[in-house]
């Protein structure tokens, strides 16, 4: 057990160091851009994973929280002259409010009905952003949004800020899902009736999952707009929600590492396939299909299965315990 933990920590340190050095080793701005987007999608996929993977509430509205965070941060800094960090906080609060707004009325919905409600919610937010001309400038979008900081000039600078943020959020999520609260969420995922008779307040924990997920997605939105310095409703279609969900599923629902692998994997996969031109989305679709058929529990599910097979082989030679 102890060795296992040591190996885990070592692997983690290696990954962190490699990540910190990445923008130095990989000088091409384009690949640095992908790494920044990987961090943003890590936040999005990890937060959706809390709702879908740990609490079992299938949502197709996650891009709405992302959009609310992006626009809130953009408007607060642009119109009210707030500093970027305050815009970020504002984005998180506003997205959290929307999390409560979506979580509360959908409490009684399950399965496909919940999917449709969240889908509708995502569309409502996008259409409001598109049509509230006086506030959002509609399809023209908002331009000239404040950069993260005056010193943040290169993509590497952004990466060095966003990567630690992603790490901190993932660590906090890890704490959350392994806490008493996390156990309640998992119990709701496994069996709502049983969870309820155990004394778990379903309404409270479901809304909590939606709200925490929304707050993190709002943060991602803020990080996004202060990076690209432009935002329009086109960035938050339903397809974006689906993309985030695909990252969670391909990486492995209900695991901490899964959405990270899904986020970086898909960001890089999609870009490296640009050479395929119009065949790109076809190949992407086929790749996803094959991955899901071969690894129905996502990448982490496959890792778990392989390692448990290896472990069982090890156990066979060891004396039986207990």
């Amino acid at each position: 057990m102890k060795n296992n933990r040591l190996i885990k920590i070592l692997v983690l340190i290696v990954i962190l160091v490699a990540a910190a050095l990445y923008p130095i080793v990989v000088q091409r701005g384009y690949y640095q851009h992908l790494a920044v987007m990987g961090c943003i999608y890590t936040l999005l996929a990890s937060s959706l994973n809390l709702i879908v993977g740990y609490t079992g509430q299938l949502s197709l509205g996650h891009a709405a929280f992302y959009g609310v965070g992006a626009y809130t941060s953009a408007l607060l800094t642009l119109r009210l002259g707030w500093p970027v960090w305050a815009g970020m906080l504002g984005a998180m609060v506003m997205a959290g409010v929307f999390g409560v707004l979506l979580g509360t009325p959908t409490l009684r919905l399950k399965g496909s009905y919940l999917v449709i409600a969240t889908l509708g919610f995502g569309e409502i937010v996008r259409l409001v952003l598109l049509n509230w001309m006086s506030l959002t400038r509609g399809p023209m979008g908002l331009t000239g949004i404040t950069r993260l900081a005056p010193w943040a000039v290169t993509k590497a600078h952004y990466f060095w800020v966003y990567f630690p943020i992603a790490v901190i959020v993932v660590v906090l999520l890890n704490q959350l899902v392994n806490s008493r609260t996390g156990r309640a969420l998992k119990a709701i995922r496994e069996d709502q009736v049983a969870a309820e008779v155990m004394g778990i307040n379903l309404a409270f924990y479901k809304v909590l999952a939606f709200t925490v997920g929304a707050v993190i997605a709002g943060l991602a939105g803020s990080l996004y707009v202060h990076y690209v310095t432009f935002v329009s409703p086109d960035s938050f279609p339903v397809a974006e929600s689906i993309q985030i969900l695909v990252m969670v599923i391909v990486g492995g629902m209900g695991t901490i590492a899964g959405p990270i692998i899904g986020a970086f994997g898909i960001v890089f996969l999609l870009e490296t396939m640009r050479a395929l031109a119009e065949y790109r989305m076809v190949i992407y679709g086929i790749t996803l299909f094959v991955v899901i058929v071969l690894m129905p529990d996502g990448f982490m599910g496959a890792v778990r299965r392989v390692s448990s097979i290896l472990l069982q082989r090890g156990v066979r030679h060891a004396p039986a315990g207990d």
């Binding site: 008493r180 156990r183 998992k186 119990a187 496994e190 009736v193 049983a194 008779v197 155990m198 004394g199």
Partner: peptide
């Protein structure tokens, strides 16, 4: 008041021990 629901309804992906811990949730 503890309610053992019809059809058992154990938490299928949790271990036996984790199921029992859930019983003590409150």
């Amino acid at each position: 008041i503890a309610h053992v629901p019809e059809g058992r309804r154990v938490f299928p992906k949790m271990t036996v021990e984790e199921n029992l811990e859930m019983g003590a949730f409150v």
